[in-house]
Structure formats: structure tokens, C-alpha cells
Nucleic acid binder design. Structure first.
Lengths: 245, 245
DNA sequence: AACCAATAATTGGTCAGACCACTTTGCGAC
DNA sequence: GTCGCAAAGTGGTCTGACCAATTATTGGTT
């Protein structure tokens, strides 16, 4: 039953082990409640040291995918929120889900998220969001796309709702959108417009105007969405899709 | 600089180490970019084995609070996306408002999901939903709670949107809610009312009335949601976060 | 046969020492 | 001063061992 682990470039060993378990779980070989072989046995099967196995299990545990109980064993758990979002993120990566679908989810979530944030954001939250926009401005002025600050803004918005479950779900979605966002921001003028939208959203949040925050976010997403759906090279003829208005 | 680690009840050693680092970061002793002592040095200072230090560092790394670089060292990172939420949630008890948070996410998602389903459901989708309701009726008449059919209805509803990403997100939420749903359905009369709500939603979907489907779902969720989950300080009364239209 | 307590086996948690691979540092030759 | 290479520093991994909690087994008593 011994199986080799393909040692990819620059990847740590325990990370490769984690990926193997992810695959086993997604493929159904390991379901909820399954008991893992003992650490010593796993180490022998995978031909690695026990320490590496333990670090891998520690990772799975933090991802909510496993629970270790002293004396009894380690068990797979696929029903925790962490577990599901972890598996979701890694399967999004394999592009099983269309980018368009993910944008739609985002379009369902984020406007309401902005509304919630407008109701609950503390001064601290606003300060954090504000700092991110300053950073985004700086990046843009230096000719960068500001994609990092852009992503971080959406993420910080989620934390401003003070709903940890919402943060996890949104960050799973945003994670996937990061690459396409980078692509989208390559278009001239786009970074600045994105920043302007963000400022508008933040203003509404500061004012506690949840309806305004929601529609500002809807506006922002609608402006960003269409062009990003089309991968580079498949861009439709003109820029009428990029209606910033 | 050696310092003892207080070994709390039932806590693993590497978890205690992680908490110590959390404290150091929150108190400001470790700021962004700080380089940690070498693993061997840390082990000696804390009077623990190097393996425990490594498992602690692995945890910090997964929480986005640290980055290890082979050959150079381990560095604190408080600016990553994960880092902020980790520090935010580490002060709270984890599962206190957790359930409330998840319900809130659901409340954000499902009404819109119902609206989407109303727009896109095929005859096949409607047939599937209808069959599930028949099964739910059967289970209830036999005295069961019908929790399985109940969960399946929400899942099938997600499928009817024909958005695979949305299905994953929703099933993530529903998976976690399954246990609490079973509990909720124990109350007399609850299963039948749930079934009635489902029928109403399905009617709206069959009619293609997306606004009606959305409000029917909102009605359903509000009826099912446990009422007394509002944390202290929050205002349960007036501000309905999920305003229709 | 059934039950219960003592014991053994299993398993995760921790520690120690060693070696390898990558990075940085610093010294010496030029 | 600069370049090149060796040495030191550091994370990554392996081996073997012991401790602690749990579970399975055993053996005797009723």
C-alpha cells in the first residue's frame, strides 16, 4: 500500500501530504468520521518521517478537516464550516466552477455584505478600510494595478460585518477571484475607477447608510464584472461592456 | 529569557505556544516583519522540544501570522488577509455566536437563491423539488422530523439555479446547519410548517415569480430561525437587515 | 455466563539528536 | 573594492525513544 509522494518544486513535504489527503477526501475515499491510520503507520506507508505526518495532520486540523484525539486516533471531519470552505476553495482552483458563476455568487453576497458593514462597522473598521484605500491609491500612482489592496478592501469589508462565518465564505470567493481581478485591472483607467468605487462605498459605510452602501457595491460590481468574465483575447469588440458610468 | 508555559487543562503544548505568540503579537512585542528566533533557540527558551515549536509555527503560518523561509528564518506577518481575522477571532470564544453568524449568512444567500431559481428552474428542476416535498410529507406523516428531505430541498433549490459555485457555497452553509435544523424540527408543528413554506416557495418558482420566491424564502427562514440568538448589545428589534426589494 | 477490575496494546503528544538543503555572512584572494 | 567560496545559521526531515490518554484484552469473581 506504500505510495510515493511526488515532490513538486519548492514544495514542503508535509504540504504534499496535505494535498494527498485533500484529494482522498474530495474523491470520497475518506468520508466524514473515517479514522485515519496511526501516525506511525501513515509515516511508513508514505515513506516519510512521523514529524512530517504530524505537521500535515496539524494542517488538516486547522482546516477543520480532521480531529485528533489523544489515545484514540485521528478522524476525518467534513461537516465543519472550515472544512467545507477549505474543500470549496481547493475545488474552485480546479476551475470546476465557471468564473461567471463565481461572479454571480459575489454579486449575491457583497452588496448585502456592504449593507451589513454599514450598520456594524466600528471606527476601527473604518480606519482599516481607509488605510487600505490610501495604499491602493499609492500603488496606482506608482503604476501598479493595486490588486492586492483591492482584494484586501473586500476582505476587510467582510471583517467589518463582525460575522466570522461570513468572512470565511466571502474570503473563499475572493480568493478565487484574485487572479481574474488582476487581469481585469490591467485595462487602462480601471484601477482608478475601482478605487473611486471603493471610496464611495466607504463613504456610505461611514455615514451608516446601509441602503447606499448596498447600491454603491452593486454599482461597483456591475462595473467590474463583465470584462473580467471574458478571458484575455476573447474580449468583445468594443468597450461598451466596460460601462463605468 | 526562559519562561514557563502554563499548561492549561487538556491543552496541547503547541497550542499553548501558539497562544503565547498571539499574545506577543497583540501586545505589540512582535510586529510586522519581526524575525523570530531560530526554532532550536525557541525550543530552548520555552523549554520544549523543537517539534512542538515547529507545530506551533505551522499553526501560525496557516493563520497567516508567520512565514517560514528555508535557510533564512521565520517572520511575523500581521498584514496578510488571514492575519487580521485570526487575531480578531482569537479573543472571542469560537462557537458563541457562531451559529447566529451562519444563520445570517444563510439569510443573506437563500432568498436571492430562491429568486434565481425562479428565473432559471427547468421542468426537471421543478419535478425534483416536487418529489422531495412528497418525500418530506411522507416522513412527517410517519412521525419523523423530515430533516433529510428538508436539507435536500434547500440543496436542490441551489441546483436549480444552475450555478455550480452557488451550489457549493450554499451546501457549505446547509451542511453546518444540519444538526441545528434537526433540533429545531423537534418542536411540535414545526415540520409541517416547514413543509408548507417549502410548498409556497415551489409554487412561486413554478410561476417564475422571482420576487415572490424571494419573499417566500425570507418568510420561511425567519420562521425557522431560532429567535433568541442575538448576542448582548445587538439590537434585535428594529433594523431588519434583510430588507426586501 | 455475566460482570468487573487489572493489565496490555494502541495511539497521539513530546523530546532528543542527527543530517540535509537552502541562505546569509564573512573572510580571503585578486 | 570586488569577487568567489567556505563557514555559519536556519528551516526541513528522519530516527528512535518515552510519556499520557484511550481502548482492547485478559482473568478472576460472582
Amino acid at each position: 500500500m506504500q505510495s510515493e509522494l511526488q515532490n513538486l518544486d519548492g514544495q514542503r513535504l508535509h504540504e504534499a501530504i496535505v494535498e494527498r489527503f485533500h484529494a482522498l477526501i474530495k474523491q470520497g475515499s475518506l468520508e466524514h468520521g473515517s479514522k485515519l491510520p496511526a501516525e506511525r503507520v501513515l509515516a511508513e506507508q508514505l515513506k516519510v518521517g512521523r514529524g512530517s505526518v504530524r505537521e500535515a495532520i496539524r494542517t488538516l486540523e486547522l482546516q477543520g478537516l480532521a480531529v485528533s484525539k489523544h489515545g484514540s486516533g485521528t478522524f476525518i471531519n467534513t461537516q465543519s464550516l472550515d472544512a467545507v470552505t477549505t474543500l470549496m476553495t481547493s475545488s474552485f482552483g480546479t476551475s470546476e466552477a465557471q468564473l461567471h458563476d463565481i461572479f454571480e455568487v459575489r454579486h449575491l453576497l457583497e452588496p448585502q455584505l456592504a449593507a451589513l458593514a454599514a450598520k456594524r462597522a466600528t471606527l476601527e473598521d473604518v480606519a482599516r478600510l481607509s488605510a487600505i484605500l490610501v495604499e491602493q491609491q499609492r500603488q496606482i500612482m506608482e503604476g501598479e494595478t493595486g490588486v492586492d489592496a483591492d482584494t484586501e478592501f473586500h476582505f476587510a469589508l467582510a471583517t467589518a460585518t463582525h460575522n466570522t462565518a461570513l468572512v470565511k465564505v466571502v474570503s473563499a470567493v475572493e480568493d478565487v477571484l484574485r487572479q481574474s481581478r488582476d487581469q481585469s485591472l490591467q485595462q487602462p483607467g480601471r484601477p482608478q475607477r475601482s478605487l473611486d468605487s471603493h471610496r464611495q462605498i466607504l463613504e456610505m459605510i461611514q455615514a451608516g447608510d446601509h441602503l447606499g452602501a448596498r447600491s454603491a457595491m452593486e454599482h461597483h460590481l456591475t462595473a467590474v464584472e463583465p470584462s473580467a468574465v471574458y478571458p484575455a483575447g476573447a474580449t468583445p469588440n468594443s468597450d461598451n461592456l466596460i460601462t463605468t458610468s
